[in-house]
Design a protein around this nucleic acid. Structure first.
Lengths: 152, 152
DNA sequence: CTACCTGCAAAAAGTTTGCACCCTC
DNA sequence: GAGGGTGCAAACTTTTTGCAGGTAG
């Protein structure tokens, strides 16, 4: 119930070892960079940041590493429909979960947490006999700024 | 509050006319086919069905028409992360909106409606200054049957 | 040393676009 | 008839893959 939150780096190493893979300088760097950022990174954004430290990193390596982190349960994939796959740090439990408000006009992404919705979701799931492990909720619309701009 | 649920075909025609566009045999066929199916269609699936009626339809036309239907508020885009953009029939108003419960074990998809969640979503959006046009909510977990099977 | 990993570039896969011709309005 | 629509294929974009050489275990 209150397990020490293992450092992502160690979870990754454990996953790698367990699956007969090998660690590498690149994987460590990409993971370190990814976990040091709070938000929704596209591959390009992540690659850019990683290349600050090491310009020789190839983008294929970033793709491969992020898939690995997703499989290891350390990253979550998000598709907001702008044609860019994004990754976000995975959260250990529902408590920390947040959802997204997405402006379809300017692309702005706002995160929010609403415990009431979470508990209603749990209730709905229960009514249908489901035990929910995770969920995605995205509200699409127009943010304040864009409403102002488009107002006639 | 209780507007006649206009036939999608008519909504589309109205949208087309209002925006100085023109109707066409292809658009009518694609829309008719799309609205005749209940589910989440990928472009290829839709194209396949449309070509049963008219093998000359080009896939670009399907892409273009689905974008049009989405803009007209008649279709919703879904990205389930398999690399295929899918469209689903949109519902006229929030009342009819449904969300998804997805069993990660057997793949079962259950649709549900929960007005309380909808209204909380609207409130959250308002707090952030957003005007929401649509949303997606997917709860992932294990359904009753699969829980039974996996119980130790 | 034996895999596995990486970077590069080519290949895939999905979607958009340019254009000549066709069809609504 | 004029202007938008279509089909085709080429162009784009994002992601995956093949391969020669590098590196962890």
């Amino acid at each position: 119930m209150n397990a020490e939150p293992a450092h992502p780096r160690d979870v990754m190493r454990a996953y790698i070892t367990k699956n007969g893979m090998k660690t590498s300088r690149q994987r460590e760097l990409i993971a370190e960079t990814f976990f040091g950022v709070d938000g929704h990174l596209s591959i390009d954004e992540l690659l850019e940041r990683v290349r600050v430290e090491d310009p020789r990193i190839g983008q294929a390596t970033v793709y491969r590493t992020m898939k690995l982190l997703a499989k290891a349960g350390l990253a979550e994939v998000r598709q907001f429909g702008d044609g860019h796959t994004r990754y976000e740090r995975a959260h250990g439990d529902q408590e920390e979960h947040h959802d997204h408000l997405i402006c379809t006009s300017c692309g702005k992404i706002v995160e929010f947490v609403n415990p009431q919705i979470e508990s209603l979701q749990a209730r709905v799931a229960k009514q249908h006999g489901f035990v929910v492990t995770h969920h995605k909720m995205e509200l699409y619309g127009t943010c304040e700024d864009c409403q102002r701009l488009h107002r006639r």
